[in-house]
Design a binder for these strands. Structure first.
Lengths: 237, 237
DNA sequence: CGTTGCCTTGAAGGTTTTCAACCAGTGTGG
DNA sequence: CCACACTGGTTGAAAACCTTCAAGGCAACG
């Protein structure tokens, strides 16, 4: 972790997405006081590691993170990508120790709320927002599940782009210019396909004029055509 | 729903798995008073339907349920199976209306906690158990995710059996005699493969002496061999 | 300038899907 | 009582798709 900055929930652009979503100004100040600071991580830095004590609840404030789990054979498997406003690191609450690791994909700031502060947060009025975050998390995971039930690489990838676009749009961004700071290797792993499959599918889509890639930015040119190959359940609508 | 029965948390065999897991006897009585009753459903009966208001939190007390979502083209997709002690129906908390339907696979009883009663439950001492349930839910979904990242049908099915066995063992059952009251069609849909693939794979495994099926009971004879074909991430260990 | 990380492309092989036929058990109406 | 339809599952053969193994490209870096 590089440094910490004051939480400043009242001026945080992510406030309407996270635990603060239902709060008024006075409550926002109370929340910021409880949370204290947000921590800033450089790309590649770990937010927590497998085995660390789960004594905090994490929410991405800006940037992006990935969570990875180690398979018995020692390879790492990407279990999730998380962007601004998303809660992560919930798996450890059962045992009190993390079952996965989380690391920043880009310069990323994260609000880390102490579990011991949660009762106070409920009294401030965050309980409803927490339920909503849980509901959203469940929805995202369910849609990922449906994505993975598609067998064709083309369909998985298209569904991923559409889902990510939709999430990004809800965060106030553009659904056609996607911020995806992960490597293709990670994405392939996450989508349950080989790097070669992903590369080929991406090439085909690019050649077909469906999208272009410029570093971490994927630009979707013809979302309708993407929807056509995504099969069922690409979007929540 | 056929009928309702008193919640009786103190004598419920599922109490150590659900929201009651951390409570003492006095707290258990308070919880039972708040919850009131559990509802009993016959096989095929809906617990809730898509579009219903999400004003309750559901926990399976006994039996089994499946959750299904409708695809844009109108087919149903099985998004989950839930057994005793498992929480379900969380997706609706974001919008206040359910995004999926839930129905009993067998004679099933379900505790349905009003969302408006949650603050009182937190004060009783259920807040920690709720976090643990969320953590478990997250863990289950992550393992399902890893299962679906396997491409081979054999690996998916083996991983499913092992994961289900582990869950069932934690519920006090036997990890080698699995209670799976769903139809093969549902299971195939859930595992992201065709019914034909599932049938073939099941036949192969049975012929190999790995398991036998008797109605809703699947008996695993050689879990080690199952583990061998399951690839990585069949289990949580 | 060689190395490394990250990605692309090619060809062969393997597994699943698809389409189709078929079977057993069950319930229904005449 | 029997023909009939229906649900749920099994099995076969061809086609489609992905994975695997292998080679190569390219920019960054020391």
């Amino acid at each position: 972790m590089a440094r910490t900055v004051p939480a400043h929930c009242a001026s945080c652009p992510t406030a309407r997405l996270c635990l603060a979503r239902t709060l008024d100004d006075a409550q926002l100040d109370l929340l910021a006081e409880t949370v204290g600071t947000a921590d800033v991580y450089d790309a590649g830095a770990y937010i927590y590691r497998l085995g660390d004590a789960t004594d905090r609840l994490h929410v991405v404030r800006s940037g992006a993170i990935k969570t990875i789990a180690l398979t018995p054979s020692g390879e790492e498997h990407v279990t999730g990508f998380h962007f601004a406003g998303e809660i992560f690191g919930l798996m450890g609450f059962t045992t009190g120790a993390h079952d996965d690791s989380a690391l920043a994909l880009d310069k990323t700031s994260v609000c880390r709320v102490r579990v011991s502060d949660l009762p106070q947060l409920w009294s401030i009025g965050c309980d409803n927002a927490f339920l909503m975050l849980i509901g959203e998390r469940e929805k995202v995971l369910t849609r990922q599940r449906l994505l993975l039930c598609q067998t064709r690489a083309e369909a998985r990838l298209a569904a991923f782009f559409l889902q990510t676009g939709e999430l990004q749009e809800r965060r106030g961004g553009n659904s056609s210019e996607l911020y995806l700071p992960m490597r293709l290797t990670d994405l392939a792993n996450y989508l349950g396909m080989t790097l070669e499959s992903l590369s080929r599918t991406l090439s085909r889509m690019t050649k077909a004029g469906l999208l272009t890639r410029q570093g971490t930015a994927f630009v979707v040119h013809r979302p309708d055509d993407l929807l056509a190959v995504a099969g069922d359940w690409a979007t929540s609508s």
